[in-house]
Design a binder for these strands. Structure first.
Lengths: 204, 204
DNA sequence: ACCTGAACACCGTTCAAGT
DNA sequence: ACCTGAACACCGTTCAAGT
């Protein structure tokens, strides 16, 4: 009886590995779960995981990517919501993904593969937010500062889950600052050179 | 000729190890520097480091603690400066320590020893900032939100050094928000029993 | 108390071989 | 293409022994 014959479809096994890795990484951490124990928990050889994901860091990236795909689908349904509602959704969502994001951050200094992926994602989120804010009437300068501030705060939320009591206040502070600033604009400016933003900054 | 006789005073050797570890951790990262290579670079046995610092994580903690001591001495000379000047100092200082702080964050998920130390430090900084802000006339509620916001932003700065172009803007946004809010207070409140703060902090 | 050299258990990755 | 079992080089920590 050939033991190394495939009994399930490759993508099913791939999903199995991802599910087991998600569970393990979140419960026991990245360094806390060895490839050997992970393989054993699924019932495959250690090298099978290597075959599907090449190495541990790529397994991590694939894992987070899969989670992000689910999140994107959900977020796209909030197109019509207010900025604070969207911030609220992102807040809850980020908290759910917090442990995973933390693991990614933990690998950024050690693995340039993870770092490259993380930086790319970060950049994409930044551009996306910026575009959303400008659609809603923010000046370019406002959009820069607000997206950056929001991202920094999100980082803080993720890395310091113990401070969750303060999160709502900080978020409210941020959201109301942004919304009042946007309200004061009177409408989207079509004079990009004008310094109507209350924040005076060097040009981008 | 006895090779394991101590030639230099213990605290000198301790400092030697710390200096070599600082250099190595910053250049090659935490996981990138093995205890073996670190020991070799100093010219001692691998176990000598273990004897002084017990394990790698405690070595890291001792390292950061030493750097913090230097920073504290410098900061204490800024008592009379404005809030934005102090934020500016902290900004520059944090950027210098950035790589080290990143390493600490990277170890937080894996090592509960590092996590406990980090959380303690974080709490102390929070309480310290809060007190400083209230001395300058912030209400308890304001102090809570502002210190938390500032800490989140600092986290963001440290974890995303690639966004340094935007840092000054975000800092200015933060500092001016805080200062204008403080200016609007008219004076410090002397009613500590009032429940304007929803955060109950244990004393130091 | 301070330090060495050797051993230990473990890790992620790779290799040769099977189907 | 998919998968195994064994080997590989490395890691941080520990142990017995020296001074």
């Amino acid at each position: 009886m050939p033991r190394n014959k495939r009994e399930v479809a490759p993508d099913v096994k791939r999903a199995e590995i991802l599910a087991a890795a998600l569970e393990a990484f979140c419960c026991r951490g990245y360094e806390g779960t060895s490839m050997a124990s992970l393989a054993e928990s699924i019932g495959v050889s250690q090298n099978t995981i290597s075959w599907y994901f090449t190495n541990k860091d790529r397994l991590l990236i694939a894992l987070v990517e899969a989670q992000l795909q689910v999140a994107r689908a959900e977020y796209s349904r909030l197109q019509a919501s207010s900025i604070s509602d969207r911030l609220q959704w992102i807040l809850t969502y980020i908290q759910g993904l917090g442990p995973l994001i933390n693991i990614v951050h933990g690998r950024v200094p050690a693995s340039q593969e993870v770092r490259a992926w993380h930086d790319g994602l970060h950049q994409r989120i930044l551009i996306f937010f910026r575009a959303q804010l400008m659609e809603r009437g923010a000046t370019p300068a406002q959009a820069d500062v607000f997206t950056q501030s929001a991202l920094f705060v999100f980082e803080g939320i993720v890395t310091h889950p113990q401070d969750l009591v303060n999160v709502e206040k900080v978020m409210y502070f941020l959201a109301s600052s942004v919304e009042s600033a946007l309200g004061a604009n009177g409408g989207p400016s079509d004079d990009p050179g004008h310094e109507s933003s209350s924040i005076h900054l060097p040009g981008t």
